[in-house]
Design a protein around this nucleic acid. Structure first.
Lengths: 332, 332
DNA sequence: TTGTAAGCGTTATCAA
DNA sequence: TTGATAACGCTTACAA
């Protein structure tokens, strides 16, 4: 068995509470005893038992990130993972551990269970992992939680952090217009997702009164037909794509049919990873800082746990433009 | 305050231990009392306090994955992340939670601390996160741990799981030879890493007695010069690359200097993500199953925790070849 | 099949 | 500045 606080107390000749006080700094203890206790802990290589501690205090010093265990794509992608990395780092920095929780009730230990069982002090939840039970649970107990992404309308009572999808969209279009393109089309996966709808909103706002075309990729069985129509009928000369995969598919079709980027067609895509820099030509991108996203969410959550922050804070992380070959300035 | 086991006991009119027995199935309890207890738990929405439980049993039902918090690249890449996802899923399946631990001592709660403080029951450690302290610690206490990758020579006393780097290499060369290429060169990052050295080993074994050339990318300041020399002097006509990034760099140089893939040059790369499929032409790959890697490691670890498995097991996950355009069969 | 009671290691309350 | 002591919620001998 490992040493306990009692062993230290006995060795030094003080009571366990004194040792506890030295460990936690919860009372002023004479320099002399403090020294002796420190020395004894060092000598026996004593480490407090975290479970006993958590049990006694009711605090676990652990936060959980909820993931969708049914959907590997939602987890194992570079964007989410930079966030995970940031969350872990920030948590560490503030003395917290990160637990990965399952958003799905059907298998293993669900996020709700972690809350019920008091295994964590707070939750970071991607909106798509939020379900009714979790929602009621955190609201009822005022359990600290931060959404990693803007919640859908009508659920604004949570704290959340998101990247500036609307602003990113604007940045992209203004850039295209600046470079001499006239008819940028927006390609999204599914406008019903919050981030695609925000991007569409930004697109529409900048192009108010002008030609606006939004293509939903999930409906495009015959992509080339669609592209060709947009080119001939709508004079499409450039695009903003909502992700690298879309950008790849669109540019491949165009190139295969004789279009050259950037001369015949300009392209900006959201996300700098994984393909943008490696495409031919390398693509200009709206870079979303998912690292900062994760870091800010974690800071906010821990502040809530420590009662330092309002229950209803929200923050938007700005995006930035990285210019590359795919939007080279056009000669007038 | 949430309900405790005593509340349930009182409500049903039994002792707390009986309730505990029902929860854990540690004794046969009459059907009648079992029913009543279950009903009471349901009614009060009772959930056992995990910290009290862990404290009493000394078991946390949590495993930790150690990561290198100083190096984002080591964490936020698609290979490692499929493993993380698999680890989480497998852990869930067996009723364990996954904690992310910091391999680095300098910041926050290090992996060693988690062990000292008894916050986890076992560790999954990438070999590059293994340090002297951790090594001594797990050996001394016979603390359950599995390495996520083959350890360097002389550290074989750990359980480990790795992908079949040597076999993957062989698969790649045999494929190139089959397709009619004659002089495959191996491009690695750094042969001192275990996986590159295994790959080199496989390469040498298949080409025993024939021309063998291994290029270390970290030393190649002028890549084209090197490639040109290999082509003219050594008649290089194909390559195996140790990762997508190398494959991209090599193929870009070749294409820029007028070589066509696969006609002038054949290429196989390790790893199917993130670029291989999106390159021009799409690259044939040695696909490494990092999902299975993580899953097997987790199974092994949990078996160790439950005393079902030897302390010194090791397992190798086979690789497989995915043929694409970059190694189309040559006409003789 | 069930109850009693001790114990897990720490913190927190109350006194001194 | 310190010490006794209770309490945290659960598990587990030991008894019955």
């Amino acid at each position: 068995m490992a040493y306990t606080i009692k062993d230290i107390a006995k060795k030094v000749g003080v009571s366990p509470s004194t040792v506890s006080r030295v460990i936690n700094g919860t009372a002023t203890i004479s320099d002399e005893t403090t020294q002796k206790i420190r020395a004894a802990m060092e000598e026996l290589n004593y480490h407090p038992n975290s479970m006993a501690r958590s049990f006694a205090t009711g605090l676990t010093k652990t936060i959980a990130l909820v993931i969708d265990a049914d959907n590997e794509k939602n987890f194992a992608n570079s964007f989410f993972n930079r966030s995970v990395f940031a969350i872990e780092k920030q948590a560490q920095e503030e003395g917290f551990n990160l637990l990965i929780a399952n958003g799905n009730k059907s298998v293993g230990v669900s996020a709700s269970q972690l809350v019920y069982e008091k295994k964590v002090d707070g939750l970071i939840i991607p909106p798509n992992c939020m379900n009714k039970e979790l929602e009621n649970l955190v609201k009822k107990d005022e359990f600290p939680c931060v959404l990693l992404g803007k919640p859908a309308k009508g659920k604004k009572t949570f704290s959340w952090v998101d990247i500036d999808n609307c602003g990113g969209s604007k940045l992209a279009i203004r850039h295209l217009l600046n470079q001499g393109y006239r008819r940028p089309v927006l390609f999204v996966e599914n406008e019903e997702t919050v981030f695609d709808s925000e991007r569409a909103f930004g697109y529409r706002e900048v192009l108010a009164g002008k030609c606006q075309i939004i293509v939903h990729m999930d409906e495009e069985a015959n992509l080339w037909e669609k592209l060709f129509a947009l080119y001939t009928k709508e004079k499409m000369d450039s695009a903003i794509c909502s992700n690298n995969e879309i950008a790849f598919r669109v540019s491949r079709e165009l190139k295969q049919h004789g279009f050259a980027l950037p001369d015949d067609f300009g392209m900006v895509t959201f996300d700098n990873y994984p393909l943008a820099e490696y495409m031919e030509p390398p693509l200009s991108v709206i870079d979303v800082d998912t690292y900062t996203l994760g870091m800010v969410a974690t800071k906010q959550l821990i502040a809530m746990i420590q009662n330092k922050k309002a229950k209803n804070a929200c923050e938007i992380i700005p995006t930035k433009l990285i210019e590359r070959e795919s939007t080279r300035k056009r000669k007038e």
